[in-house]
Design a binder for these strands. Sequence first.
RNA 1: GCCAGAGUGGCGAAAUUGGCAGACGCAGCGGACUUAAAAUCCGCAGACCCGGAAGGGUCGUAAGGGUUCGAUUCCCUUCUCUGGCACCA
Length: 824
Amino acid sequence: MINEIKSYEFEEIERRCQERWRAEGTFEVSEDPTRPKFYCLEMLPYPSGDIHVGHVRNYCITDVVTRFKRMRGFNVLHPIGWDALGLPAENAAIKHGTHPEGWTRSNIASMKAQLQRLGFSYAWSREIATCDASYYRWNQWFFLKMLERGIAYRANSPVNWCPSCLTVLANEQAEGGLCWRCRSVIEIRDMEQWFLRITDYQDALLDDMEELSAWPERVLQQQRNWVGRSEGAEVSFPTEDGGTIRIFTTRIDTIYGATFCLLAPEHPLVDQLMNGAPKESALTLARLRGQDRRARLAGQVEKEGLFTGRYAKNPFSGERIPIWVGNFVLMGYGTGAIMAVPAHDERDFEFARKYGLRVHPVIQSPEGALDGATMTEAYTGPGVVTGSAEFDGLASEIAVEKMSAHASAHGFGGVKTAYRLKDWLISRQRYWGTPIPVVYCDKDGVVGVREADLPVILPPDAPFTGEGGNPLEKVETFVRATCPKCGGPARRETDTMDTFVDSSWYFYRYCSPTTEDAPFDKAAVRYWFPIDLYVGGIEHAILHLVYSRFWTKVMRDLGLIDWSEPAARLFPQGMVHKDGEVMSKSKGNTIAPDDVIKRYGADTLRLYILFAAPPELSMEWSETGIEGPHRFLLRVWRVVHKRAGTASRGRDFASLSENGAALRRRVHQTIARVTADIDERIHLNTAVAALMELTNDIYRLEEGLTGDSDEAALGEALDTLVLLLSPFAPHACEQMWSDLGHPKSLVDEAWPEADQAAMREDANEVAVQVNGRIRGRVMVPALADEAAHKALALAEPGVKAQVEGKTLVKAIIVPGRLVNLVVK
RNA sequence: GCCAGAGUGGCGAAAUUGGCAGACGCAGCGGACUUAAAAUCCGCAGACCCGGAAGGGUCGUAAGGGUUCGAUUCCCUUCUCUGGCACCA
């Protein structure tokens, strides 16, 4: 007789579960030294207004891991917060005549409701918003500490300016010359700005990667490129008028081939060298300096230069070489000056040919000797050094060492390392950010605000007119300040901090979000750190993920913590595409999670998003694909409810039928698979697939079950299925768990353990190959030895036919899997 | 140009350490149930060839080559795509 099956009313089930988790504070945690801890983190979202599918994908991954680890006995911290300061809020305020804070707060409220509808396991009591003064005051506190130590400094330098966002940007945020936020072409302007000395940590950022073995190689590689360490040498070329040109080179082995020197147009020596040069040269120089520096940086401008009229001496050869200015030499890298070796550098070669300068080869290519007059391209590979006095005959690598040592011994140079990384420009000429806590005093200059006077609060009454300029400048009560040193009148800094400052340390704040006398409680942080799993978008590989590694190192040097890296494991999830394109607001191809939840429920959405592709690859959103996981959930629901209320069926498996034994095998094999998939590889798609297979097996086997032991096996199967599925579809599983007759909430149940004995097969189907081609399959008892495998294989009729009349040369046997018979 | 990653059925994908390629799902086809449809349940399903069928054979993981008894997996060459960096000396 068939029971009436309760229908799956996901809306009601999900609402009830979520209410219960909230009311009972199910996912709230505190430090508990008696249990292993697990810190599971996702990158905090910017409150743009709506949760999109990309967020959902990110948070589904962490939610599964959180619930899984919790059931495995870990004390799991899974917090969430809001990266709440930033330009979009300010732009929205200008557009709608409101205040950025109101816009931000209402976005947070609606996004929070959306997250709750998805049933994520957050410790909501630890929620933070970076726009709270109780949070950003610690940005200011950190800034003051860095100011004291010279890590924060103010300097005039060429900086990236976004003409649309009306603010400067850090190097990391000028992606390929475009603003990371609005894609406008950035300009380079000379401005006095605040920087953080991230370059003090450039070696640490590279060397500490040794600790990041659980970070993906592609992220580390990107960061390595970004830091751009390159080992070379610095050499001083004396000029004829008693000056010195310092050049950086990675190819000191080619120095005897240097036929001229090149300076960047902005190089400080240029004016002096050009003193008295003909007017026409001065005009050319002015033109080179006026060239768009961004385009020059990107190599989009034709190589051009001019002769200064002066000469320098090659300190190795003593040769007199002309000094030129070249527009492709960058002031921001190395020393802003190079020795030009046209024979062995493509750019120098191109320049030399254009201006008829000498090409003088000093490295023998494997094809033989080179002729400077006739060569058509530079030879840039390594080789044997020639025409270089006592260094002749050395291989490039050896010559580099010897020549560097020579320069060092004679006091005109030595080994030197150059970096691509620039200091982090953190000032922003906008309102909705953390005020930089300094004042300008006519008497004392730049003075940090007293720690006791923090926070410097954003004045709520700033005018958002959209006329350009920082609204803070127009708030007189804010700008007018008192100098902490002399007590005299001072002007307050109106620049605010890059919002990447906020996100550089927020994960420490989660450990003690209400601590008032420090950025965080040291003991709490010591308990929870490091972050065990950090999941977020790959687009932060060199932004947030460099900044936060830097910040942790600074905190270590401030004595706040005693480790150097914040996250033990990083897992960048793939992006969500629709119709082959990245899903984004600007493309108008976004999917609203709310609509999907309404139609299928949160559990189906979660299952679908995790099943569709492995989490680290991009996934293609498909409207029809979601039907599969939904049908799966319904299938589980039906098979569970056929047996509702039968939780206490015992665990006596003494007299299992064949089907019963098969079912138990499948159950325990599935436990092993799902556990490994979540715990080790985070391959959640195959974990879901394994659960689908188990469900199919239950359907297939349940009809043939008889007797108490079989009933017990079925009970075990259903319980296990629900437990294993629960991190993916927590609401439906909570309901099914209760309907099966379990009184306790499922989130506190222990994760099932695979029983090795129960999962072992009695016999395995073994593939039999003859000369590497499959010719048959045989059933072989589980513990059969190699001889038995061979005998069974040879007895198989299809195999027999292939082997007959031939000599068996060799038999390769992989027990339980395969036999390969090699015959001649 | 340099660096990293990827390329598997109509589609999303799987294959844990070199050992049965295509699990699981979508779309499709067939059957059962139904007055009928939907839903559900049970099947079929890489391509090509032979065969009435049962079955058998050949090819097949971007392309070509190599190592191996055996290669989606390791090595070499080439192509394509994605991401990052790029006149960085």
